[in-house]
Write a protein that binds this DNA or RNA. Structure first.
Lengths: 287, 287
DNA sequence: GTCCGTGATACCGCCCGGGTATCACAGGCC
DNA sequence: GGCCTGTGATACCCGGGCGGTATCACGGAC
């Protein structure tokens, strides 16, 4: 009575996201009528109207929005339980040993820090195996929540640390990465305003859920594309100082004087109780 | 395949907590055989051994402990989704309006602060109705996690703030509450060591999950019982300074010089997105 | 050896979740 | 108005799975 099956949550989240019973049904791999019925039962059991069926589409009520948010969180927690349990039992299909940590890092970030951390931890007496998984743009938090990762390197203010436990590791300034031939590359320092409004170097646009924000800049999907476009003199980018590790010969880095500092943290799910994780965190804070 | 019904989680958590299929079955209100079968199916589906059946009891494997922790979190998230959705729809049985915040406070704590907060918030233009629910000993965190509360006043270092978003509100010292007639009550200040080892005033023992820890002190279940025992000269207690609000005539408060300061925070679930909550937090930080 | 207590197995019945076919209704055409 | 289209809801059926009872297999206590 006061509990909800994950199946019902999956159904509702699908409908709430699609706002269309038919599309939600195909996404769930089922027919539409049972889905309609399931949602009705859900509403009856909760005693709450979740969807406003206005012939020609569906809209969420306030309670529906609440259930969408909370239900997503609950589903993430459930899939995290499955993933972590499988890993703990060594049955995640990778043939892994049972004592392994999955560390999520934004691809290409904090190269040097990561290297030092892994070396120092490997030397620790109780070191577990660490699997480094590159994460997409700022999805480390999601990976921690749904159990794909046990621990992550996160970069404030880009990643939100809210909901995780974390320790600060380092602070660094930011740099502009410019084509070496560009006039601005000769400068000793720059401001954010000076690099964001260069007519011949429009800022690149990253895909967000498969869609690109509007704007004049080139569309990119990964860092290599960005690096190439900079080298070709088509755009400019702003990165933490540690990005110097992957600069090309045609790139020039110029410090930004007024960009907010980037703070790298090591973060993990708040309720974690793993000894291997504690040991890794201890190693990291002592670097 | 990579998902788990809450029913299965409930079953496993019950077995893992009881370490006994029969007792777990009665707790779940079902017979033992289907429960055994369900756990076996769960192990098969996860591809992981969760329990070690050693004739004469059951023990958890490493993977089992992982699923117990993660599964509890997932179940809490699911019940939180139900509770918050019902409240958002005004169907929680209390006949409440849909815009209401539930604030958990440890009974008797931070009286004055709470009063000022409620008054200030009531004066805010966009104020929601605030329902104050007294929480048991340090269970505010649990109430936030399982959706019984939306926001809580928490007291570091007694409550753990890990996993929540929070703002610091005030810091206070701690006092010893003694029977007025006791020799120590005449002192201007005391140390923690001086009040914890008084032979004729053994520290009271609080029930923890219905069981009392061993020791010489009296067994108590709430603050009134404690206050009475102090007034009767049977025990001594240590509280934050704001406890002066509820002292009896027969009580004497003496500051403790070396007790860690108590920091009161307002805390809420990290993923919360409620405007009413944001407004309450803003009010609190401006007190 | 004989109980008792444990969890596992065998078998059965029924409920419920899902499928197909169809309806009810609102708009957009012509 | 007549017709088609697209929406979600309803009616009905079927099969799998969940839970129940009865029983087993095994080990310890006396």
């Amino acid at each position: 009575m006061d509990t909800l099956e994950t199946r019902e949550l999956r159904y509702f989240v699908a409908v709430a996201e699609e706002l269309h019973f038919g599309r939600a049904a195909v996404r769930l791999g089922m027919a539409q009528p049972p889905l309609s019925r399931a949602i009705q039962q859900l509403e009856r059991r909760l005693g709450v109207r979740l969807l406003e069926r206005d012939r020609r589409g569906v809209t969420l009520t306030g309670a529906g929005e609440m259930l969408l948010h909370e239900g997503r969180a609950a589903l993430e927690a459930a899939t995290a339980a499955v993933r972590r349990t499988r890993r703990a039992g060594g049955a995640d299909g990778t043939g892994a040993s049972r004592n392994r940590l999955v560390l999520a890092v934004k691809a290409g970030s904090s190269h040097e820090l990561l290297h030092k951390l892994l070396d120092a931890y490997a030397a620790a007496p109780d070191a577990a195996e660490v699997e480094v998984v590159p994460s997409g743009t700022c999805e480390q938090g999601e990976m921690l929540r749904d159990g794909r990762a046990d621990v992550a390197l996160m970069h404030a203010p880009f990643n939100s640390l809210v909901g995780f436990d974390s320790e600060e590791l380092m602070t660094e300034g930011q740099i502009a990465i410019l084509p070496s031939g560009h006039p601005l590359a000769a400068r000793g320092s720059l401001t954010v305003a000076e690099v964001t409004d260069v007519p011949d170097l429009p800022l690149a646009r990253w895909a967000r859920d498969g869609v690109y924000p509007p704007g004049p800049g080139p569309e990119i999907r990964d860092q290599t594309q960005l690096a190439q476009l900079i080298a070709l003199g088509r755009t400019v980018a702003v990165f933490p100082e540690s990005a110097r590790a992957w600069l090309w010969a045609e790139h020039t880095a110029v410090p930004l004087t007024d960009a907010p500092p980037v703070v790298t943290h090591i973060a993990w799910p708040a309720h974690s109780r793993s000894l291997a994780l504690a040991s890794l965190v201890r190693t990291a804070t002592r670097l």
